[in-house]
Design a binder for these strands. Structure first.
Length: 437
RNA sequence: CGGGAAGUGGCGCAGUCUGGUAGCGCACUACACUGGGGGUGUAGGGGUCGCAGGUUCAAAUCCUGUCUUCCCGACCA
């Protein structure tokens, strides 16, 4: 992409409303713009990041055996009356009336709707287990939205729902999501620690939150530093593998959010206990027949008896992750994208656009990189070199290529690693091969 | 929902106390210079001061109401 043609409105100064790093940087880097409190538009750069996060989440859900669906944002109140949550949910649910006076709502979550879809179609234990997920916008009318996309009212969430015949099977479904989450967050370039969680208003008795460590995190967390030694990507589950040992390993060490923190249990880890702050990016629940029972989502078992299915739900805050990744990965100059979610892999800067030789070489390099399948943002604007460097650091692409008349004479470009700051002189003839992988 | 702060060109702010022709920096437009870390100069364009009432000869400024946004707390993917 040529920057001269792109829509990338970066800001030199921080808008007054943005207080925390990720919000400031997302606004400055031209990723998002605010529509109302807790409601944002995603501009091209931000949208690319959002899609990359979404795709990694999707790949790992698919790998774990879940099937993607897409449910609507607007729901009828009927199902919520049936589950008993229409009254329980309170003002956080945005309630809407259509022209016929029917009570509708903008979905804050989809347990009821997916349970309804399931119960209409599945009648036999032979069709279990099943796991259905979607990636869809949700709305929760938070009392106080804040921190940009990290606590928005409208947010993009992946929510999966599992259906099993019995508890034993349901735990296997839970474990599959547990492992998928470990892999997902690792691929997104963040370290997320699973912590025993309170089951909250959704109810149930087996639940974990996945917390990304960041100083600006909303929750206080306590965990064993032994988590540093675990590698989520070491788990490459074949279908049918027993995942319990992996889950056991990850839950063997102490980890708890403030509300679940038990100093007497934590004491066992004593010197290895770390206290920090974190951002909740995922939350998984097993809640049994909480919804299947009142909504009569039942199947016949091998004996011909009708039994309510055992359910779990599994959420990942996709839009929140865009902010959380920045919170965990930035410096004074701007964002530092992990390569897997970076909007572009490489930023190419023509430092001397008035130099015909340099411009020619840049155009050629840009074209070669594109042909090699490298995602590259080419700053071909007629502005000073300093502005280009500053802007490139701000938007945080993993690799920067600086090419000017000085380098052209020797046939070399400067390649900078945004994360480490390390710069190296690279022969123009080899740079494409170096960046294509 | 309790407590606090703020709304003035696209962005960051001053002016409000003490009423008297709306200002600065950045950005933007044109031209010239410059060209390896947000460079320099000259000349421009752009604002019913959140909105609605009121006081006054006169309101960004004083009064009343209202909307919006942000921060702290209680609640949450």
């Amino acid at each position: 992409m040529r920057l001269s043609r792109y829509f990338l409105p970066t800001l030199k100064e921080t808008p007054a409303e943005a207080q925390i790093a990720s919000h400031r940087l997302m606004l400055r880097a031209g990723m998002i713009r605010q529509g109302a409190a807790g409601i944002y538009s995603w501009l091209p750069l931000g949208h690319r990041v959002l899609r990359k996060i979404e795709n990694i989440v999707r790949e790992e859900q698919d790998r774990a055996g879940a099937f993607e669906v897409l449910m609507p944002t607007i729901q009828s109140s009927d199902l919520w009356v049936e589950s008993g949550r229409y009254d329980d949910y309170g003002k956080e649910m945005l309630r809407i009336e259509d022209r016929h006076g029917r009570k509708m709502l903008y979905g804050p979550t989809n347990e009821e709707m997916i349970t309804d879809i399931f119960r209409r179609e599945v009648k036999s234990y032979k069709d279990l287990p099943k796991n259905l997920y979607h990636i869809q916008w949700k709305f929760r009318d938070e009392i106080r939205p804040r921190f940009g996309v990290m606590r928005g009212r409208e947010f993009l969430m992946k929510d999966a729902y599992s259906f099993d015949l019995d508890t034993e099977s349901a735990v296997r479904s839970y474990n599959a999501m547990f492992v998928a989450y470990l892999r997902t967050f690792a691929r997104l370039g963040v370290r997320a620690i699973p912590m025993r969680a309170d089951t909250g208003p959704i109810g149930g008795d087996l639940s974990h939150e996945f917390i990304v460590l960041a100083e600006t995190g909303e929750s206080e967390v306590f965990f064993d530093q032994g988590f540093n030694d675990f590698d989520p990507m070491a788990t490459q589950p074949e279908s049918g593998t027993d995942l319990q040992p992996i889950v056991d390993q990850w839950t063997s060490l102490y980890a708890a959010t403030e509300e679940m923190h038990d100093p007497s249990k934590a004491a066992k880890t004593s010197d290895r206990l770390v206290q920090g702050r974190g951002i909740e990016v995922g939350h998984i629940f097993f809640f049994g027949d909480k919804y299947s029972k009142p909504m009569k989502a039942e199947v016949q078992n091998a004996e011909g008896a009708s039994v309510a299915v055992q359910m779990g739900s599994y959420g990942i805050g996709v839009s929140r992750l865009a902010g959380a990744i920045i919170e965990a990965s930035h410096d004074a100059n701007g964002i530092i994208w992990p390569e897997s979610v970076a909007p572009f892999k490489v930023g190419l800067m023509n430092l001397t656009p008035k130099d015909a030789d340099c411009t020619k070489a840049c155009d050629q390099l840009y074209s070669d990189l594109c042909k090699a399948g490298v995602e590259v943002l080419f700053d071909d604007r007629a502005v000073g070199a300093g502005a280009k460097f500053a802007n490139m650091d701000l938007i945080g692409l993993p690799w920067q290529i600086a090419l000017g008349s000085r380098g052209i004479k020797n046939g070399i470009a400067e390649l900078k690693n945004r994360a480490t700051g390390e710069k190296q002189e690279v022969d123009l003839a080899t740079i494409v091969a170096k960046l294509a992988n």
